[in-house]
Design a protein around this nucleic acid. Structure first.
Lengths: 386, 386
DNA sequence: ATCGGTTACTAAACCAGTTAAGTAAACCTG
DNA sequence: CAGGTTTACTTAACTGGTTTAGTAACCGAT
């Protein structure tokens, strides 16, 4: 490969002008040839492409963007302390799924960590103004989220992850969290649990509210005596603290459902620390089934979902919105329960026997593994009774 | 904020021409005013800035980039299956540290997952050609890595993470992995371990080679009888398999050092599964101290390093290289041993007493460093020595 | 031979900034 | 007050592509 160098030793990037001169045609012809436009003969096209390759020409994205081309980049603005990012498996898995989809299309992902909502909105405005991204992925929706309004106003292609709160023009991808938590509650109730607690995520997030409501509602329906939700912030520390509080209360719950895996794992540690056996004394259920859940002992029963797949679907939808198709709302598979060693019937003294109205499932080790592999029939939501 | 709309309802992005017209000056004056260049009076500058703000002007990055401006973006190309990314705490923590540094400077990070080396090189060439990034961070260096050559040729500002293999012009940030592994081996030897195994990372990576050599060398020096290294790929599955192999061998090791935390946690699971007590029957040491290590039971002794800090330093150096300062080689703190419940003296029957030639250190909790000021002294490990 | 239509190609405008060069007025100095 | 410098501003060239309008050559059909 030839590399022309300027006096300073700096490599000079070849432009289409160089290609044009070398190939003996006009710049316009080069542009046509390289972009598969009609207007050049096949022989000229081949020659131009050969020359371009030979002198190591690369399109200048800035120049293209200036002429209105796409940036081939999508953006995600993350509002959370940058340092926390690394310990949040959800995000990384999500991003890995997004990347998996983008990388096949040679799209790049731009990440920007922002401190607060104002900064996040400023980032969107800047990205839009600078044409730096073709579209954005938005997550952690809040009640009455102002981002929706801003993004609609800018008409920046957007896909929202999670339940869409009243956005008409933005795409969204969501899964039925309520159904998932109902599945977990029904399973625990069928095992005989009558005191179930939940360690929930940040209460200001939309999906937390949805889960909290569904939890309370289904516990009531299943005749669960005590159903508390403690709010937390997804960190292991908070999860441990909440667990400690729950397990040291007078009538401690016989089962705890966590809003993420980190907290569940931390909760398991606390149970061990307090000399309680899992699942003998207390059953634990995690939300999100990262490898963590399978590595600890006993392995954690979890509400599993294919997070990379979720990200991939969102990315795919965003790309199609960018390509011009209208924004729609896509429902992803609901998380499904994968039972493992951390759940069992409560010890006899803690719970009597009677089965409630819905016939309890056969229950025990429904070791769901294989199903997820190739993630095929995205239909079938969980068997939602009543 | 005024927003001028074109016929189609699309928001028209205001340009400096609009600002110029509105403010009654030339485009050049607007440019000078907005960029703090001299050549405009203070009053004009204020007026221009006010007008720009009022009509919602944003700089068009493409146009700026075309005139040679920086993109305010750095790039990382990751060569690994996108789907795996999410379960690798190291990467996410690294990225979080990089982001922490970048976000204070309003720099963005562009991530691109690539399939193989050729694709990675192509990405660098493209980024360079398109001026899409101002610099790149390179990791997972291999022996005789062609990326170094390409990046030097392009003179794209680069910082290499990890031992720099013969690059003159690229910056790098590295830590003394050899010292860390020596510390671990000395500690285990001082506890009385004489059969130490290691589950290493991908052998083609430079830092794996360094660790493997240092491990063998220090085991020899400390009079360790058996010192095997099994190569692995950092996944929990492989870590579990390697552990199973090690622990079921005739003269099984009394201590195992893992090249990352995922494998160590998986190894702990295997030990439990096989009915071995940790640290009674076997001591485990992890490399990299993610929250995982503290959440499992017993908590894992680990070679801890501040990975986000590592990323932050690399990012800072890259920014200064971009700013024009010459590339240097920065040594980060070596990982240091944090002792927890997973290590203890081997059970009596397994190991005799004699101490080898170099007087072993007093050994137990050698609570870390403080060399790098900013961050708190990463402090107090759990007491828990046997 | 001429007309219309297609094809292959070029010149030049355009995207939205930056910046070198130029100009007119104000200001300073001897 | 002539001459030089500074200040405040404008014009126009430039970045590297895309795209429109235009031209010349060639084709088949009148």
């Amino acid at each position: 490969m030839l590399t022309s160098r300027s006096v300073k030793g700096e490599v000079k990037r070849p432009t289409i002008a160089d290609v044009a001169r070398e190939a003996g045609v006009s710049q316009a012809s080069v542009s046509f040839a390289l972009n598969g436009q009609r207007g050049v003969s096949e022989s000229t096209r081949r020659r131009v492409i050969a020359v371009a390759k030979e002198i190591g020409w690369n399109p200048n994205g800035a120049a293209r963007a200036l002429s209105g081309a796409a940036s081939n980049t999508i953006g995600i603005a993350l509002r959370r302390p940058a340092r926390i990012l690394g310990i949040e498996p959800f995000f990384m898995e999500l991003i890995s799924g997004v990347e998996a989809e983008l990388s096949t299309r040679s799209y790049a992902l731009t990440l920007q960590v922002v401190a607060d909502q104002a900064a996040e909105l400023a980032v969107y405005r800047r990205w839009w103004g600078e044409r730096r991204v073709d579209g954005v992925l938005v997550c952690d929706l809040r009640v009455d989220d102002p981002r929706i309004h801003v993004l609609e106003e800018l008409s920046l292609p957007t896909v929202v992850l999670g339940a869409a709160a009243g956005s008409r023009s933005l795409g969204n991808v969501w899964s039925d969290d309520a159904a998932a938590i109902v599945e977990a509650v029904e399973y625990l109730a069928a095992l005989g649990h009558r005191r179930i607690a939940r360690v929930g995520g940040l209460p200001e997030l939309l999906h937390t509210a949805i889960r909290t409501d569904a939890f309370a509602e289904s516990c009531r329906r299943m005749g669960v005596e005590a159903a508390v939700t403690i709010s937390s912030d997804y960190t292991g520390e908070e999860g441990a603290r909440a667990t400690r509080r729950l397990l040291s209360s007078a009538d401690r719950p016989t089962a705890v459902i966590y809003d993420n895996d980190i907290m569940a794992v931390a909760g398991l540690g606390v149970a061990h620390e307090m000399g309680l056996s899992v699942p003998g004394d207390v059953s634990l259920v995690a939300w999100d089934d990262s490898p963590l859940c399978q590595l600890v002992h006993p392995a954690l029963t979890a509400l599993s979902r294919d997070i990379p797949g979720y990200g991939a679907i969102a990315a795919r939808q965003l790309l199609s919105v960018i390509a011009g198709s209208s924004a729609e709302s896509i429902q992803d598979d609901a998380p499904h329960l994968v039972t493992r060693g951390s759940t069992a019937a409560p010890s006899p003294k803690a719970a009597p026997k009677p089965a409630p109205k819905p016939a309890p499932k056969p229950a025990p080790t429904k070791t769901a593994v294989g199903k997820r592999s190739a993630r095929p029939p995205r239909a079938a939501t969980s068997p939602r009774t009543s």
